[in-house]
C-alpha cells in the first residue's frame, strides 16, 4: 500500500526499475573487474592481517568494496581504527 501511494505521488525510487538498475550496476562492477565475492573476502582477510601489524582496527565494521564511475573501477576500503599500536611507533 505504501508503495502504491508513493507511486501515486510519483516517487521514482519506489519503482522496480530502479531496483533492477542498482542491482545490475553492482553485479557489473564485479563482472567487469572479474573479481568474485570469494576473492573480495580473501582480500579483506589479508588486509586485516597486514593492517593489524600497525594498528588495532574494528573488523566488524570494516568495509571493502569495488566502486565504479564511468570507466574506472576503484577499490574503496573503510577501516575504522580503534587504537594505534604504541610499540610499533616507538621502534
Amino acid at each position: 500500500m505504501l508503495e502504491f501511494i508513493s507511486r501515486m505521488l510519483g516517487k521514482e525510487n519506489a519503482t522496480s526499475k530502479n531496483v533492477a538498475k542498482e542491482r545490475l550496476r553492482l553485479v557489473l562492477v564485479h563482472d567487469r573487474a572479474s573479481i568474485s565475492p570469494y576473492m573480495l573476502n580473501k582480500l579483506k582477510e589479508d588486509l586485516i592481517k597486514v593492517i593489524s601489524n600497525y594498528m588495532e582496527i574494528d573488523e566488524s565494521t570494516l568495509e571493502v568494496n569495488l566502486s565504479q564511475d564511468d570507466k574506472e573501477v576503484a577499490l574503496v576500503a573503510n577501516i575504522p581504527v580503534l587504537k594505534m599500536k604504541r610499540d610499533f611507533a616507538n621502534k
Binding site: R7, E12, A14, T15, S16, K17, K21, L24, R25, L28
Partner: peptide, 16 residues
Amino acid sequence: MVKRGDMMDISDILDI
C-alpha cells in the same frame, strides 16, 4: 511497464 517504472527503458540500458 516502462511508463509505470517497472521496466528499464532504452536510455537505462544504453547507459549501462
